[in-house]
Simulated assay, not measured.
Amino acid sequence: MSSPLPSGQSAPTVLRIVLGRRLRELREERRLGLSDAARALDVNQLTVRRLESGQVGFKLPYVRTLLDLYEVSSAEADEFAVMTEQANRPGWWHSFREALPDWFRAYVSLETSAQVLRVYEPHYVTGLLQTRDYARAVIRAGFPDAPEEALEQRVDLRLRRQALLDSPDVPALWVVMEEMALRRLVGGPVVMRAQIGRLLEALDHPRITLRILPLAAGAHSGAGSHFTYFRFQERELQDIVYTEVGLTSALYYDQRRDVVPHLETHTRISQLAAKYIPDPRTYLTGLREEYSR
């Protein structure tokens, strides 16, 4: 297991991770150790390790010193300088930092930069497809003592994340939801009818695949814990899997031995869902009518 993304205030943008890994590749290509880089920067090896893993922001003088050590051309050094400036810019979610749990900040960065998102959700409609009223009801249940202003900020954050689906770089979103997530009455029948309508609209989106896994499918390898699988265009980034642990923490996996079973599980349960409910539109239309009675 690996948790390459720190939680808390230092949660990096994906670009910072990319920059760190490119610096590590350059160091290794020159057959230099962490001690060599640390000596050049007059820091300890732990600081270099944290730079290369994207756990801290980059200071341009540090980057230029390392590039000199690695004998990088001036043209490539200039490209790194531009990337360093971009990597240090706060993401759009920075303005929502009070509404973001520490352990979820890295998730939003990954979600914003991913090329493919594969989601398994056993409990609720996945956040990227929630209506405002449904999101408010779910968040209120999760934070029953939160003041109204804080609640609305969390709702605004969730809706702001959905802008990703209308962006020029929209990722492929592949969601498998348990039937129970749609049978659970969240916010009342009116809210559920509107939420089912939102899912019906999502079926028309060219980059969204939605599968519904009925209770009749029985036990399966994904049961018990929802997860999100991220794939990126940048060659430096391995696939990453996110899964929550309890109510107040999460894990981020990037090792093949951990990521591959999640990918295989998502494929398997998606095929199982398609076997039982080959036409989600018919199922959702019928379910919406049930909530209208």
Rank of each mutant, 00 (worst) to 15 (best):
A40E: 01
E98G: 07
G222K: 00
W93A: 13
A223G: 07
R257G: 07
A146Q: 02
L19N: 03
E28W: 03
V155R: 11
A87Y: 02
A77H: 07
S249L: 01
V175H: 04
Y134I: 08
F232L: 05
R160S: 14
R30F: 02
E79L: 01
F143W: 12
V138E: 02
A219G: 01
I139F: 00
A150C: 08
P6E: 09
T267I: 10
L215C: 09
L66P: 04
S270H: 08
Q195H: 05
A137I: 02
T13A: 13
A106G: 15
T131Q: 07
T65V: 15
A75Y: 10
E234P: 02
Q55V: 10
Q233T: 14
S73D: 14
A137M: 01
E76I: 08
R231V: 06
E29H: 00
R27L: 03
Q162N: 13
L210P: 03
R235I: 06
E179L: 09
A77Q: 14
E264M: 05
A87N: 02
Q238T: 12
S292N: 12
V56A: 05
W103L: 11
A219Q: 06
T265H: 06
F96A: 03
A87T: 01
L247M: 13
E25R: 04
L157G: 05
R158N: 14
P168S: 13
R154N: 03
Q195L: 07
L66S: 09
A77I: 11
Q233W: 10
T65D: 09
L32H: 00
A37R: 06
R97V: 08
H220G: 13
G91R: 09
S249E: 04
Q130V: 06
R293T: 06
A194M: 08
M177N: 09
A216I: 11
S7G: 15
T65K: 15
F58N: 06
